[in-house]
Design a protein around this nucleic acid. Structure first.
Lengths: 145, 145
DNA sequence: AGGAAATAGTTGCTATGCATACTAAATTCA
DNA sequence: TGAATTTAGTATGCATAGCAACTATTTCCT
């Protein structure tokens, strides 16, 4: 078996390529790919807590804190202590953050279309299902340790 | 379209999970996932240059240089200026690096088996083909910019 | 031959990912 | 009720990913 035959390596390299492309696409909006993920969640529902976002994105809370801090610096979001739970930090879009949505969402759709060009709906579904199986396998392997 | 519906996000999250798992598996060998990729290439062919490795792994030469430096510190490889091309740096396994192979390769095969459990040969081939299409699409999008 | 362009590496910067250790607030439960 | 536990965040350190700018060779081309 050769290095490039491991499926995890192929997935990794595809991901790197995608990330690199998305990074380039988002540069004009002054957003990094991960910062964009947070913004996308906020556009769906404003006022989410960092913890909520970390769970949704399956990310470490440390990273979410850092990214939220960056987004605050860029003035796309405002951070405020939670109303019910004083420990929580809620993220609220600023006007500037809201304006971004109008520009970024179409770009994301366009990008998604470019990536999936020539790939049928069935093929995409199959891809999603196989990735889901891999996810499940890894989760189960982790639990067994 | 929701955040989690973009295929690139699903690939990204699967990759993160896989990387996290591999990192854990390799910890006992004092290897990180990316350092392991370099070792795997050297086990296939000793004396590769950093540039060769960067191309094979589709990685930035900066990273390869740094990872090679780490591997040298851990005494798994030795670095030497290329014989023909004085600019190039070739990586050679040490005895310790060679010994690693006996332990790591079986672990990698075992891990790959765990990840692909319950996924048919056909399904895996389909996954590879779809990922290849995505790779191609991204490459072409990048060229058009 | 010799200057221009390409190539291989290195260093420094920013952003991420994840682990550990810590604080403070909320919840559980004896 | 009040101590123990859980939960949300923060700080720090290491490994990775990629960009930009730089040096040192090598190759190309006139």
């Amino acid at each position: 078996m050769h290095t490039e035959d491991f499926i995890s390596i192929m997935i990794h390299q595809t991901d790197l390529k995608l990330t690199s492309f998305i990074k380039e696409e988002l540069r004009v909006f002054n957003l990094t790919p991960e910062q964009n993920l947070i913004m996308m969640l906020l556009w769906e529902e404003d006022g989410r807590t960092q913890n909520d976002i970390a769970r949704k994105l399956q990310k470490d809370k440390t990273n979410v804190a850092r990214m939220a801090s960056q987004l605050e610096k860029k003035q796309f979001v405002r951070r405020a202590a939670g109303t019910q739970d004083q420990r929580a930090v809620q993220l609220f879009m600023t006007d500037e953050g809201r304006e971004l949505q109008e520009k970024v969402r179409p770009a994301a759709e366009r990008f998604n279309a470019a990536v999936t060009k020539g790939i049928s709906r069935n093929e995409l579904t199959a891809l999603e299902q196989t990735l889901a199986k891999i996810n499940k396998n890894v989760s189960e392997s982790l639990r067994e340790e």
